[in-house]
Protein backbone atom coordinates (compact mmCIF):
# COMPACT_ATOMS: atom_id res chain seq x y z
CA UNK A 1 0.00 0.00 0.00
CA UNK A 2 2.78 2.40 0.99
CA UNK A 3 4.63 1.61 -2.23
CA UNK A 4 1.46 2.31 -4.18
CA UNK A 5 1.07 5.74 -2.58
CA UNK A 6 4.75 6.52 -3.18
CA UNK A 7 4.37 5.43 -6.80
CA UNK A 8 1.31 7.62 -7.24
CA UNK A 9 3.11 10.58 -5.65
CA UNK A 10 6.09 10.17 -7.96
CA UNK A 11 3.71 9.93 -10.90
CA UNK A 12 2.01 13.20 -9.96
CA UNK A 13 5.37 14.90 -9.47
CA UNK A 14 6.68 13.71 -12.82
CA UNK A 15 3.48 14.78 -14.59
CA UNK A 16 3.85 18.21 -13.05
CA UNK A 17 7.53 18.57 -13.88
CA UNK A 18 7.72 20.82 -16.91
CA UNK A 19 4.11 21.92 -16.52
CA UNK A 20 2.52 24.75 -14.57
CA UNK A 21 1.13 24.27 -11.07
CA UNK A 22 -2.71 24.23 -10.88
CA UNK A 23 -3.24 27.95 -10.09
CA UNK A 24 -0.80 28.95 -12.83
CA UNK A 25 -2.44 26.54 -15.27
CA UNK A 26 -5.80 28.13 -14.44
CA UNK A 27 -4.30 31.55 -15.21
CA UNK A 28 -2.89 30.24 -18.51
CA UNK A 29 -6.36 28.88 -19.35
CA UNK A 30 -7.92 32.27 -18.65
CA UNK A 31 -5.37 33.90 -20.94
CA UNK A 32 -6.19 31.30 -23.61
CA UNK A 33 -9.89 32.11 -23.41
CA UNK A 34 -9.11 35.82 -23.74
CA UNK A 35 -6.71 35.22 -26.64
CA UNK A 36 -9.38 33.19 -28.43
CA UNK A 37 -11.93 35.95 -27.93
CA UNK A 38 -9.53 38.45 -29.49
CA UNK A 39 -8.55 36.18 -32.38
CA UNK A 40 -10.73 33.25 -33.47
CA UNK A 41 -7.74 31.74 -35.31
CA UNK A 42 -5.79 31.41 -32.03
CA UNK A 43 -4.86 27.83 -31.12
CA UNK A 44 -2.16 27.91 -28.43
CA UNK A 45 0.62 30.03 -27.02
CA UNK A 46 4.01 29.73 -28.65
CA UNK A 47 7.43 29.94 -26.99
CA UNK A 48 9.02 31.02 -30.27
CA UNK A 49 6.73 34.09 -30.51
CA UNK A 50 7.43 34.68 -26.82
CA UNK A 51 11.16 34.71 -27.48
CA UNK A 52 10.70 37.48 -30.04
CA UNK A 53 8.62 39.51 -27.58
CA UNK A 54 11.32 38.99 -24.95
CA UNK A 55 14.36 39.82 -27.06
CA UNK A 56 13.10 42.54 -29.41
CA UNK A 57 14.06 46.12 -28.58
CA UNK A 58 11.67 49.03 -28.18
CA UNK A 59 11.74 52.62 -27.03
CA UNK A 60 10.53 52.04 -23.51
CA UNK A 61 8.92 54.08 -20.79
CA UNK A 62 12.19 55.83 -19.94
CA UNK A 63 12.59 56.99 -23.55
CA UNK A 64 15.54 54.71 -24.26
CA UNK A 65 15.84 51.47 -26.21
CA UNK A 66 15.17 48.42 -24.06
CA UNK A 67 14.11 44.81 -24.22
CA UNK A 68 13.16 42.37 -21.48
CA UNK A 69 16.72 41.05 -21.80
CA UNK A 70 18.12 44.47 -20.80
CA UNK A 71 17.42 43.48 -17.21
CA UNK A 72 17.01 39.70 -17.36
CA UNK A 73 19.92 39.03 -19.79
CA UNK A 74 19.58 36.94 -22.92
CA UNK A 75 20.48 33.83 -20.98
CA UNK A 76 17.51 33.25 -18.72
CA UNK A 77 19.32 30.69 -16.59
CA UNK A 78 21.82 33.31 -15.43
CA UNK A 79 21.19 36.22 -13.08
CA UNK A 80 20.18 39.54 -14.55
CA UNK A 81 20.82 43.09 -13.43
CA UNK A 82 18.71 46.22 -13.26
CA UNK A 83 20.78 48.65 -15.35
CA UNK A 84 19.43 51.69 -13.49
CA UNK A 85 19.94 50.56 -9.90
CA UNK A 86 22.63 47.91 -10.42
CA UNK A 87 20.56 45.50 -8.35
CA UNK A 88 21.04 41.85 -9.27
CA UNK A 89 17.97 39.91 -10.46
CA UNK A 90 17.64 36.19 -9.79
CA UNK A 91 17.42 33.99 -12.92
CA UNK A 92 14.06 33.98 -14.69
CA UNK A 93 14.31 30.39 -15.97
CA UNK A 94 12.37 27.95 -13.76
CA UNK A 95 15.12 25.39 -14.38
CA UNK A 96 17.57 27.67 -12.60
CA UNK A 97 15.11 29.28 -10.16
CA UNK A 98 12.17 26.95 -9.35
CA UNK A 99 10.17 29.74 -7.64
CA UNK A 100 9.60 31.43 -11.03
CA UNK A 101 6.12 31.18 -12.58
CA UNK A 102 4.63 29.61 -9.46
CA UNK A 103 2.55 32.51 -8.07
CA UNK A 104 -0.18 34.02 -10.21
CA UNK A 105 -0.27 37.40 -8.43
CA UNK A 106 3.49 37.75 -8.75
CA UNK A 107 3.40 36.85 -12.45
CA UNK A 108 0.55 39.28 -13.17
CA UNK A 109 2.32 42.09 -11.30
CA UNK A 110 5.55 41.73 -13.24
CA UNK A 111 3.89 41.23 -16.64
CA UNK A 112 1.99 44.48 -16.15
CA UNK A 113 5.03 46.43 -14.96
CA UNK A 114 7.50 45.07 -17.47
CA UNK A 115 5.26 45.33 -20.55
CA UNK A 116 4.70 48.96 -19.56
CA UNK A 117 8.42 49.54 -19.13
CA UNK A 118 9.44 47.96 -22.44
CA UNK A 119 6.33 48.37 -24.66
CA UNK A 120 4.73 51.41 -22.98
CA UNK A 121 1.46 49.45 -22.82
CA UNK A 122 0.15 46.33 -21.18
CA UNK A 123 0.59 43.05 -23.01
CA UNK A 124 -2.32 41.34 -24.76
CA UNK A 125 -3.47 37.95 -23.46
CA UNK A 126 -1.66 36.26 -26.34
CA UNK A 127 1.59 38.14 -25.77
CA UNK A 128 1.52 37.33 -22.08
CA UNK A 129 0.92 33.65 -22.75
CA UNK A 130 3.63 33.51 -25.40
CA UNK A 131 6.17 35.08 -23.06
CA UNK A 132 5.19 32.75 -20.22
CA UNK A 133 5.64 29.73 -22.51
CA UNK A 134 9.04 31.06 -23.55
CA UNK A 135 10.19 31.55 -19.95
CA UNK A 136 8.77 28.18 -18.97
CA UNK A 137 10.78 26.49 -21.75
CA UNK A 138 14.03 27.71 -20.17
Amino acid sequence: MKKYILGMTLCVISINAGGFNPPMQAYINTLKTQAKQADTGFSDFDAKRGEKIFLSKHIGKRGTEVSCASCHSQNLTSAGKNPVTNKSIKPLAPSANPSRLTEVAEVQKWLKRNFNDVYKREGTAQEKGDVLYYIKSK
Binding site: K61, R62, V84, A105, K109, K112, R113, N114, N116, D117
Partner: peptide, 12 residues
Protein backbone atom coordinates in the same frame (compact mmCIF):
# COMPACT_ATOMS: atom_id res chain seq x y z
CA UNK B 1 3.99 54.07 -8.44
CA UNK B 2 2.85 53.77 -12.07
CA UNK B 3 5.69 56.12 -12.88
CA UNK B 4 8.30 55.41 -10.23
CA UNK B 5 11.46 57.20 -11.40
CA UNK B 6 10.60 56.27 -14.97
CA UNK B 7 9.45 52.70 -14.40
CA UNK B 8 6.16 51.03 -13.60
CA UNK B 9 6.32 49.83 -9.99
CA UNK B 10 2.57 49.52 -9.50
CA UNK B 11 1.18 47.35 -6.72
CA UNK B 12 -2.23 45.90 -6.01
Amino acid sequence: LDNHFGTDASLD
